[in-house]
């Protein structure tokens, strides 16, 4: 037995509050990132990802006290992304208690920020988030391109080539979101996940489209993902992290199970 495949719940944080409705009946304040992170830790989450979606620049700093509080009470890895533009942003988040920082749009507009950040803080702290969309026509060989701005803006960059380049620049991990699948609950884009995972030596986290537990297992078995990320299926209490792990284990996937 070796390395477990990871399950990562992802929380959207706006102005220091969890949004997109987390719904646990036993959590008094479902908007409190610390309460939610604590709950996921107790359920056996292998890691937690916070995506800071705060739009107003006046409120950009609200993420730091959140990261500080979570890191003081929840002792599993914490990845923070959203609005990371330069190495100084990476440093501030790490100093607040993040273990890894996810870089998305900034990597596209200025790839050197990935190289610079990984040189300064180490590859193991740098996650490059890739939002990819299918661009090939039906019947043609599959092709995916990088999109920014929530999937609205095409960059013309080939997703597989881009992932390889980010790995060369020192990314320690790829967070791969299928913009075709995000929010659909019909499962990960498995050919995309497999193509990226096969193309790079660094771990790949699959994201976008999870609607049930078999989707998580498929991401690992068919997509070749090293970790699977999901939001809504966990937030609304449809499934617990523990149930997800039991299901993956039943499919022969190595997972970290909570010991009694």
């Amino acid at each position: 037995m070796g390395l477990a495949k990871r399950i990562i719940p992802c929380l959207d944080v706006d102005g220091g509050r969890v949004v997109k409705g987390v719904n646990f009946i036993d959590i008094r304040d479902a908007g409190d990132p610390v309460s939610v992170a604590r709950r996921y830790n107790e359920e056996g989450a292998d890691e937690i990802t916070f995506l800071d979606i705060t739009a107003s620049s006046d409120n950009r700093d609200t993420i730091f006290p959140v990261v500080e509080q979570v890191a003081s009470e929840v002792f599993i890895p914490l990845t923070v992304g959203g609005g990371v533009r330069e190495v100084a942003d990476v440093r501030r988040l790490l100093n607040a208690g993040a273990d890894k920082v996810s870089i998305n749009t900034a990597a596209v507009s200025n790839p050197d920020v990935v190289r610079e950040a990984s040189d300064k803080v180490g590859s193991q702290c740098i996650v490059v988030a890739i939002d990819a969309k299918t661009v090939s026509a039906g019947g043609d060989p599959l092709r995916w391109e990088i999109f920014t701005h929530g999937g609205r803006k095409s960059t013309g960059l080939d997703a597989v080539e881009w992932a390889k380049r980010m790995a060369e620049y020192g990314a320690g991990e790829i967070l791969l979101t299928s913009m075709d699948r995000d929010g659909t609950k019909i499962g990960f884009n498995l050919p995309l996940t497999r193509a990226i995972s096969d193309a790079v030596d660094i771990p790949v986290i699959a994201s976008g489209g999870v609607g049930n537990l078999q989707h998580l297992a498929d991401g690992v078995i068919e997509g070749g993902a090293d970790a699977v990320l999901a939001a809504s299926i966990f937030h609304f209490g449809e499934y617990s992290i523990g149930e997800a792990k039991q299901h993956m284990a039943s499919q022969g996937i190595e997972v970290r199970l909570n010991r009694p």
Partner: peptide, 21 residues
């Protein structure tokens, strides 16, 4: 080493990232 291979020849990712026994 990269590529890093298991005995089964399956490829392992580097960094070694996550929970191991």
């Amino acid at each position: 080493a990269t590529p890093l291979l298991e005995k089964s020849q399956a490829r392992l990712k580097v960094p070694h990232m996550g929970w191991s026994e």
